[in-house]
Measured scan of single mutants.
Amino acid sequence: KRLCLVCGDIASGYHYGVASCEACKAFFKRTIQGNIEYSCPATNECEITKRRRKSCQACRFMKCLKVGMLKEGVRLD
C-alpha cells in the first residue's frame, strides 16, 4: 500500500502530483483555494504524522510543498 508523503497515512491515490491521503489532499486544496497563510508558533520544523498532522498547519502546508504538491494543480473555480 502506498503511504501519504505528507503524513504517512494510507494514500488514496496521487493528488496534485504526490501520493497522498484524502485529509492532506483536502487540506492542500482548502489552503490554496482560500489563499490561507499559516504561521508556525514554533520553529517551522514540527513533525507531521497522521496523529499530529492537525497540530501545525504551517508545517503541514510546508511539507505538502516540500514533497512536491503542485499549487498549479488546484482549480480556483
Results as ranks from 00 to 15, higher is better:
Lys63Asn: 03
Phe28Lys: 02
Tyr38Pro: 03
Asp77Ser: 11
Ala23Ile: 01
Met62Ile: 08
Cys7Arg: 03
Leu5Arg: 08
Gly73Ile: 04
Thr49Leu: 09
Ala58Lys: 10
Lys50His: 12
Tyr16Trp: 10
Gly68Pro: 00
Val18Glu: 05
Lys25His: 15
Asn44Lys: 12
Arg2Tyr: 12
Arg30Ser: 04
Gly73His: 09
Met62Asp: 11
Cys56Gln: 04
Tyr14Gln: 09
Phe28Leu: 05
Ile36His: 08
Gly13Lys: 06
Glu45Ser: 08
Lys29Met: 10
Arg60Tyr: 15
Thr43Val: 12
Cys4Gly: 02
Glu45Leu: 06
Cys64Gln: 00
Ile10Asn: 05
Asp9Tyr: 05
Leu3Ala: 11
Asp9Arg: 04
Arg75Phe: 12
Thr31His: 02
Leu5Cys: 05
Gly34Trp: 10
Tyr14Arg: 04
Glu47Ile: 04
Gln33Arg: 06
Arg75Ser: 12
Ile36Asn: 08
Ala19Glu: 13
Cys24Ile: 02
Gly8Ala: 10
Ser20Pro: 06
Cys59Asn: 02
Thr49Ser: 08
Ala42Gln: 08
Ala19Arg: 06
Cys40Ile: 04
Lys25Ile: 14
His15Val: 05
Leu70Ser: 13
Gly17Ile: 01
Ala11Arg: 04
Gly34Asp: 14
Cys56Ser: 01
Gly13Tyr: 01
Lys71Val: 11
Met62Cys: 00
Lys1Cys: 04
Gly17Met: 06
Cys4Arg: 01
Ile36Gly: 06
Ser39Leu: 15
Gly73Asp: 14
Asp77Leu: 08
Cys64Val: 01
Gly34Ile: 06
Arg2Met: 10
Lys50Met: 14
Gly8Val: 00
Ile36Trp: 07
Phe28His: 02
Ala23Glu: 14
Ala58Arg: 10
Cys24Gln: 02
Lys66Asn: 10
Gly8Phe: 06
Ala26Ser: 06
Thr31Ala: 05
Leu3Glu: 11
Asp9Ala: 08
Arg75Asn: 10
Gly68Trp: 01
Phe28Arg: 01
Val67Gly: 05
Cys64Gly: 03
Glu37Trp: 03
Gly68Thr: 01
Ala23Cys: 14
Cys24Met: 01
Tyr16Asn: 10
Asn35Gln: 13
Lys66Val: 07
Ser20His: 08
Cys7Asp: 03
Ala11Tyr: 09
Ile10Ser: 11
Thr43Gln: 08
Lys50Leu: 10
Ala23Val: 12
His15Trp: 10
Val6Ala: 04
Phe28Ile: 02
Lys29Arg: 13
Ser39His: 14
Lys25Met: 15
Phe28Val: 06
Val18Gly: 07
Arg30Ala: 06
Gly73Met: 12
Pro41Ile: 10
Glu72Asp: 12
Thr43Arg: 13
Glu37Leu: 02
Ala23Ser: 12
Arg30Thr: 08
Arg75Ala: 13
Lys50Phe: 13
Thr43Asp: 08
Ser12Leu: 08
Gly68Asn: 01
Met62Asn: 07
Ser20Trp: 11
Cys4Ile: 00
Cys7Trp: 00
Lys63Met: 09
Cys56Met: 00
Cys64Met: 06
Cys56Pro: 02
Glu22Ser: 08
Arg52Glu: 14
Ser39Lys: 15
Gly73Trp: 11
Cys56Trp: 02
Val74His: 07
His15Asn: 09
Cys4Leu: 01
Glu22Lys: 04
Cys56Tyr: 00
Val6Asn: 01
Gly17Glu: 11
Ala19Ile: 04
Phe27Cys: 09
Leu70Lys: 14
Ser12Met: 09
Ile48Met: 08
Tyr14Trp: 13
Thr43Asn: 10
Lys50Asp: 11
His15Ala: 11
Lys54Glu: 14
Ile36Lys: 09
Val74Ile: 11
Arg60Phe: 15
Met62Phe: 11
